[in-house]
Design a protein around this nucleic acid. Structure first.
Lengths: 191, 191
DNA sequence: TAGATTTCTTACCATAGGGTAATTTCTACT
DNA sequence: AGTAGAAATTACCCTATGGTAAGAAATCTA
């Protein structure tokens, strides 16, 4: 929990009341590899802050193929924000790729922090702005880069993530098959 | 300008001071088709609210190909938010696809509205949350749908936009070439 | 540590979509 | 309305990536 508090304090003068509130609605948990926190089709109420390990969110399409939206490691948040903000059932599944330590919140309760402690509004707005920027960049990269270029960029942007993931997780993030990624990796070594 | 004020009022009790502030920093303009408001590589200071017509933002890759990030019609905002929020030069170009009426703001000045009128924080946070959801959905659709499926979805989601755009604009939004889109359209008619 | 399971690699062929270029159609301007 | 330019279509072949399947390697589990 200190990780989250410190992260917030680095950007915000966190009052002791607000800190107390955060503690009161949080649950610190250690989760085994393979644990599923949110399952596609079910109701989503929770959001998670990762303090160690690695999780991913993905959807399964009508042909049974997986498509990864996000990997989350230390100091990242993960949930199904499509479901949370549209009040629909989960389109995503969130699972632990390794044993992980997380802090769990009820998303509605956590959202209440903005009404109680308005200084969080600005903090959260900045977080969302940065997230929007990263999503814009990802869309543009997906449109303009080849699969090998996307893989290179992925390794540069997320050098820590490969240790936690299977190749098919990365392939499903890049929008290619595991076999294609395997070929790309071979070509990279040749050079 | 009334369009923007009304849009805000539908979600927020807009004080007359805040309304006055918005007027004081806005410039209402009519722009001809083809006008470029932001050019890739230049400094970005402005953001635009569309009241009529259609604009798009796109980047040009190292091979000279265009990739459309966004179409904006009535009641949408458009700018290069990557540049604005990272203080970098524009990665995007923003142009008018038709003669358009827009309201122009200096992005920094507009951002100042949050400090002066904190009630905008929550409003803007909700806007950003909804934008994040739509970007998540777009990424997932790009990963899991075929080109014809993406085109069908585009027509469903943005039925009004096709009247303003050239086919190659849409193709560059979907991540395919104009020729492929042409083939897809032929196949659709056959069915 | 052996066996079971999962993942990765490789090879084969299949296919969606790309590149170029010629032709037709549309659009904008005078 | 006529013309020039832009956009769309079509056809050709090409390439990147997909699908299936088999074997190899890695990982998990008892």
């Amino acid at each position: 929990m200190e990780e989250l508090i410190n992260k917030i304090k680095s950007r915000l003068a966190l009052s002791s009341e607000a800190e107390e509130f955060l503690y009161s609605i949080s649950k610190v948990k250690t989760l085994p590899k393979g644990e599923v926190l949110i399952r596609q089709g079910q109701v989503v109420k929770r959001t998670f802050f990762v303090t160690s390990g690695c999780l991913r969110s993905y959807c399964i399409d009508k042909n049974g193929r997986e498509h990864t939206l996000l990997f989350a490691i230390k100091n990242w948040w993960i949930s199904d924000y499509i479901a949370i903000h549209t009040d629909e059932l989960a389109t995503l599944t969130v699972e632990c790729l390794t044993e992980s330590n997380i802090i769990e919140f009820n998303a509605k309760e956590l959202d209440g922090i903005h009404a109680r402690f308005p200084e969080f509004e600005s903090y959260q707005r900045h977080n969302l702005e940065r997230h929007v920027v990263s999503l814009h960049k990802r869309i543009l990269n997906q449109l303009q880069l080849s699969a090998p270029e996307r893989y290179d960029l992925f390794l540069k942007q997320y050098p820590d993530i490969e240790q936690y993931t299977r190749n098919y997780h990365i392939a499903s993030y890049l929008g290619i098959t595991q076999q294609s990624l395997s070929r790309i990796r071979v070509e990279k070594v040749k050079k």
